[in-house]
Computed example of a mutant assay.
Amino acid sequence: MRTTYNDATVRLYHLSDADGGGGAETIFYGSLDEAMRIAAQQPEDVQDGLFLATDNDVVAYIDLLEN
């Protein structure tokens, strides 16, 4: 993700392929700081499908944790 800040507005969403449709479900829309807290509270299998989108980038939640 490009350089950002904790108060940046992000969309936290989950990509699911459970029904074969690959739909995206928005979990939260607000600050990066709060989105990271909410993502950390999700079950591990859900975390694997979480993504954060800013106005100019998208990154997998797991990738943020690994860096």
Rank of each mutant, 00 (worst) to 15 (best):
M1Y: 04
M1H: 07
R2F: 09
T3P: 06
T3S: 11
T3V: 15
T4C: 12
T4D: 08
T4K: 07
T4F: 03
Y5N: 06
Y5Q: 12
Y5G: 01
Y5W: 12
Y5C: 11
Y5E: 05
N6F: 10
N6R: 06
D7P: 02
D7S: 05
D7Q: 10
A8E: 04
V10I: 12
V10L: 11
R11C: 10
L12G: 13
Y13L: 07
Y13G: 08
H14Y: 13
H14S: 05
H14M: 01
L15C: 10
L15E: 08
S16L: 11
S16H: 09
D17Y: 02
D17C: 07
D17K: 12
D17A: 04
A18F: 14
G20K: 03
G20F: 11
G21L: 12
G21K: 02
G21N: 03
G21W: 08
G22D: 00
G22L: 11
G22H: 05
G23Q: 15
A24P: 05
E25M: 12
F28I: 07
F28L: 10
F28E: 04
F28K: 14
Y29N: 05
Y29H: 15
Y29F: 04
Y29V: 03
Y29M: 09
G30D: 14
G30S: 11
G30R: 07
S31A: 13
S31D: 06
S31H: 14
S31T: 02
L32Y: 02
D33M: 06
D33I: 13
D33P: 04
E34R: 04
E34V: 15
A35C: 11
A35M: 12
M36C: 08
M36H: 01
R37S: 12
R37A: 13
I38E: 01
I38Y: 03
I38V: 07
I38G: 09
A39G: 02
A40Q: 09
A40T: 01
A40H: 02
A40F: 13
A40P: 03
A40W: 11
Q41S: 05
Q41P: 15
Q42C: 11
Q42W: 00
Q42A: 15
P43F: 02
P43H: 04
P43I: 11
E44H: 07
E44L: 09
E44G: 00
D45C: 02
D45P: 09
V46W: 04
V46R: 03
V46L: 13
Q47N: 14
D48T: 00
G49M: 04
G49D: 01
G49Q: 01
L50A: 02
L50I: 13
L50D: 00
F51A: 06
L52M: 11
L52V: 07
A53W: 02
A53G: 08
T54C: 09
D55A: 08
D57G: 00
D57A: 08
D57R: 00
V58M: 15
A60K: 01
Y61G: 00
I62D: 04
I62N: 03
I62R: 09
D63E: 15
D63P: 01
L64S: 00
L64Y: 00
L64G: 00
L65P: 05
L65Y: 15
L65V: 01
L65E: 12
E66N: 06
N67F: 03
N67C: 09
